[in-house]
Design a binder for these strands. Structure first.
Lengths: 342, 342
DNA sequence: ATGAAAGCGCTAACAG
DNA sequence: CTGTTAGCGCTTTCAT
């Protein structure tokens, strides 16, 4: 077990001063041709690599970006991470991943932890509990300290920072419009409770689409689901009571549950009932029937977030800086769970 | 934008020396009751948190562990990460995630990057390309420098380090035995090329199960798939040529493709052909028919890996230290893609 | 009981 | 051209 090579070692070995070594390695013109060559050869031979921690301390920047998400066992977040990782890597940054488990306390803890020098900035999607509480002091604090923050997907108006969101409203609208265009008359909505911003927005899009087409908005056709755990049961009960011929679900799971329930009722998807989900994952693609969905482009969201953050990080802040909100387009991917009934 | 509070600031503010502040905050008995109280009150009020980077430099440990995986958009790896994160968090560690994209070069780069002070140790699953090349110099180097490494899932004999694996052989055996027990006679295997260790081991288990039951081993019934991209096509061709009544697939995707192909051929799963997959994900659970699979307990793997690593990290190495290999049990989850034909 | 000083590994302003 | 020095934020030994 050989100890790590440091400038100090090299200096002693070559009988020069530490700063000479440092300068030589950074190709400073101050250093004589000969010494420089000697030092560089030595360093190369013994594979010298500067210590990141020391650099971080000196430069007051870590070249790592922290990403905090509610859960990782979730296709959407996973694609976002891979997008972030991709551009971060290209720009010489590392990615520190923390999970909030949708818990406010864990989110706060994680942020405090990372804010003390571990990262240069944050990319995050808020925990469900955080949105419910409406307590964003941890974000405000970090931002006040001058660390850039990019919020994605589950964002919130009140915070001044860069944001990357998808056009939830228009995505939902497109989906419902498609149902209407293919002849659905009674369109049910499977959504989440309102404090989850995306649920709220998609609900909004649903209503807009109905209004656009002079369809009545019937609250009985809207199911707001609080807990993932018993969503299946709730959907079942809902679909037994309400007779629908089209369903728009705000996520993959609700959509799958809906398809199963409909099939259990002896009806056919898409012949009797059309179903559209949100969030395009493997599940939607490989399910039978494959699901028509609103695709979210998670990778794009991750890439844009990382770009936004790194841009802030590498530019000296100017007074006329402003916060951007990037809208990543959604796309309706038509598959086999919808079909024209006209 | 207020600057971060440092010991220095506090010292100046309170008109004491830096070391007094440091000691007071760490409850050193050297410091007088009164001063200590004053300093702690001040620190608390202004929410002082020590700078992680400075601590890392001083202590020569970062309290973060690096995890390098081939891909993140993959349910299994995702569960492993969440396991790692869970115990890491409990023990006060952060998790730095890097992706190798199954590329040897990226894996090497990532390791070199993180090895220079960014992490205290590594948890990793080798890139496909790395296994193919059989070049592990980057691992050896890191280990020689005294950084603990834990390999999981895609491991390799030649490296001396802790390992966490599943009993791939016995998992495969259980699966094939189940097919045999339920009356399958011609059992096909959908596997990967041999240099992917898990593919090889599962193939081994398949053969063992057949041998155990005095079934002939027919190489024609084994399909080794190189690229994920055209796996669907290869499986289709394979199943058209070979008439099987049972299929064991070494991952979820192959299993799903098999089910679809079988159904396209006008046959029924599980009535005509039984199918078992490996890796228990949502896909298997929610698919129709739901798939019988060998469950891998990714979270457990992640937890064990993290525990192993942190143990090494927090113990002063003793001469009689040895490397452990932890075997995480697999479990056959019987669902609706298999059915007794007897 | 308090403080000065050294050192973790590196860079950069400043001397020589 | 090369070296000395100070400093990033913190801990810790050693003086006082």
């Amino acid at each position: 077990m050989k100890p790590k090579l440091t400038l100090k070692n090299i200096a002693k070995e070559l009988d020069v001063s530490i700063s000479t070594v440092s300068k030589a390695l950074r190709d400073s013109p101050e250093i004589g041709e000969e010494t420089r060559a000697k030092i560089k050869a030595f360093a190369k031979h013994y594979n010298y690599k500067p210590n990141n921690i020391a650099l971080s301390l000196k430069n007051r920047k870590t070249k790592t970006i922290g990403i905090i998400i509610p859960e990782i066992v979730h296709h959407f977040f996973t694609t976002v991470i891979s997008g972030v990782e991709k551009v971060a890597n290209e720009m010489g940054y590392n990615v520190l991943v923390c999970l909030s488990d949708n818990s406010f306390d864990k989110e706060v803890l994680n942020m405090e932890m990372l804010a003390n020098g571990s990262t240069d900035g944050f990319i995050l999607s808020l925990a469900k509990e955080t949105m419910q509480k409406g307590d964003y002091h941890h974000l405000v604090e970090v931002i006040n300290q001058g660390m850039p923050v990019v919020l994605f997907d589950r964002v919130v108006e009140d915070i001044s920072c860069d944001k990357v969101i998808i056009d939830d409203v228009s995505g939902a609208r497109k989906a419902v419009q498609h149902l209407i265009d293919t002849g659905c008359k009674r369109i049910g909505l499977l959504t989440t409770v309102d404090y989850v911003s995306v649920g709220k927005l998609r609900t909004h899009g649903y209503k807009q689409a109905l209004a656009d087409n002079n369809y009545p908005i019937n609250e009985d056709l809207i199911l707001k689901i609080e807990e993932m755990e018993d969503s299946e049961l709730q959907i079942k009960e809902f679909l037994e009571e309400q007779n629908v011929d089209g369903i728009f679900a705000v996520n993959e799971h609700f959509a799958i549950s809906a398809v199963k329930t409909v099939q259990d009722q002896g009806k056919k998807v898409p012949d009797d009932v059309s179903v559209i989900g949100f969030t395009d994952g493997e599940l939607s693609r490989l399910f039978i029937p494959s699901l028509t969905t609103v695709s979210q482009h998670g990778t794009r969201i991750g890439e844009e977030s990382a770009r936004l953050l790194i841009e802030k990080l590498e530019r000296t802040p100017s007074p006329d800086d402003y916060y951007k909100t990037i809208l990543v387009e959604t796309e309706l991917v038509v598959r086999n769970s919808t079909k024209s009934k006209i």
